[in-house]
Design a protein around this nucleic acid. Sequence first.
DNA 1: TCAAAAGTGTTCAGCCTACACCCATGA
DNA 2: TCATGGGTGTAGGCTGAACACTTTTGA
Lengths: 231, 231
Amino acid sequence: MSHGSFYANAPRHLVAVDCIIFGFEDGKLKLLIIQRKVDPLEGAWSLVGGFVQEDESTDHAAIRVLRQTTGIRDIYMEQLRTYGDANRDTGARVISLAYYALIRISEHDRMLAQEHGAHWLNLHQIPGLIFDHNTMLNEALERLRDKAKFHPIGFELLPEKFSLPQLRNLYEEIYQRPLDKRNFRKKILAMDILEKLDEKDKSTSKKGAHLYRFDRKKYDALTQHGFVFEI
Amino acid sequence: MSHGSFYANAPRHLVAVDCIIFGFEDGKLKLLIIQRKVDPLEGAWSLVGGFVQEDESTDHAAIRVLRQTTGIRDIYMEQLRTYGDANRDTGARVISLAYYALIRISEHDRMLAQEHGAHWLNLHQIPGLIFDHNTMLNEALERLRDKAKFHPIGFELLPEKFSLPQLRNLYEEIYQRPLDKRNFRKKILAMDILEKLDEKDKSTSKKGAHLYRFDRKKYDALTQHGFVFEI
DNA sequence: TCAAAAGTGTTCAGCCTACACCCATGA
DNA sequence: TCATGGGTGTAGGCTGAACACTTTTGA
C-alpha cells in the first residue's frame, strides 16, 4: 500500500459512547437509563449514549452525552472497555466505548433527566436493555467492585457530608454482603482520611450519627507515602 | 433528528488496534515492536497495529494483526483500553483500541517476525515509540501487574514445562522486586494447581530444578469453589 | 419508658514475613 | 572437592473476623 493511501483506504466506522451511570439513594444503588428514541427498538430501555463527533475526543463525547442528559458536570467517570462485535448494534455496525460514571443523585438535575425520558432505577429492577447493554452494566458493576476496593471512589456516590452507617451501607450495597459495624468503623477511621464534623444526621435515628467529610488532601498526601486505601 | 438519518448522519472514524506484545526470555520481560512502514514517522518504533475492517470485530482485528505479524495464534490476549484523543495520531484522526498479549517466545515464529521488521526488545531498552504508544505500554504493564496478581496468566509467558525458580523469576521481573524463595514456593505449591513432573531442567544448575506444569482443570475446579489465585 | 439506631474493645486464628543451612551434581 | 543453584521449616507479628452491650433521644 502506498503511503498516501494508508489512511485514505482504511474503512471508517460509526463510534459511539454508552454511559453506565450509577447513583446511590435511599440506601440503594441505582442506574440511570432512558427509553430509546430511534429505530430500531424505539421505546426500549437503553443506556445513555451518543455518537463520537469529528475532532472530539472519546472522553469528551462521554462527558458531553452525560451533561446533555443529566445536566451534571465534573463527575467521576472512567472508561470501562470497548464493545466491538460486528453485529452488536442491530441498526448498523457501531463500535461502542462504554464509560461508567458515579453521581451524587442529590446534586443531580432530576427535571432535565425527566425531559430526556431518563429514569433512576434500582439495580435489582433493571429490565432487559437493548443490544449488549446488560453486558456492559454487569461488567461495569464488576469494575466498580474491583475499583472501589482499593480506591476511595465510594465517596463520589455520597453527599459531601455523610455518616459512617451511610458509608457502610453503600459498601454493603456495592458488594452485596453485610459488613461488621465495628470492624468497618475501625478500618475506615484508622486510615485517617475522614474529617469528623460537629453536625449530626438525625434522619435515620433519634440519637443521630456523626457526619464526616472525605479529606482528599490528606488522602493524596498519604498515598504519596505508600498508603493504600482498602475496604 | 429523524429516525432514518440517526445512523446515516453520524460521523465515521478510522479505528485501529495496537498490540502490546509481552514475552519472557532469558529471565527478562520483552516487548515485540516494529519499525513503522508508512508516513508520517516512517521508520520510527511502533507497536504492532492495523485498522479494523468492515464487518470485522475489534477482537478479531487484534488477533489478525498479531497473527499476520508474528504467525502466532491461540494466545492470551485482552483489551486494555481505547485511546480516543482527537490528535493522538499525527497522520489522521484515528481511534485506537489497545490490546495486550502474552506470548511464549520459544513457540513463536522468529523468522516471520523478522520479515515484518519486528524485534523483541528488553523492557528496559524500549526506545521512544510513536504517538501515545509509550503510554499504552506503561498502562499495559500496570494492567499486567494488576491482573497477574490474582489470575494465573503468568503461565502464558512460560513454556508448558517450567521450574519454580523460573516461575519466581518471572514474577520478580513483572513486579520488579525480589521474592523470597521459600515463601514463594510454599504459596504456589499450597494452591495445588501445579503438576509436578519427573523431568528436571538442568540448564541453569548442576542439581537441576524439577519441572512443573500448570493444571488448568484443577485450577478451574478450585475456582468454582471460591478459590482465588494470588501471588 | 421504650424502641431504634449509634457507638464502642477484645480475643483468636490464620497468614505473611524474615531468615540459614543442607543437597545434588557437573566440572 | 568444590562451586553453584535447588530445595527445605520455623517463629513472631500483624491483620481480619467474630462477637454483645451501652448510649442517646424522640415519640
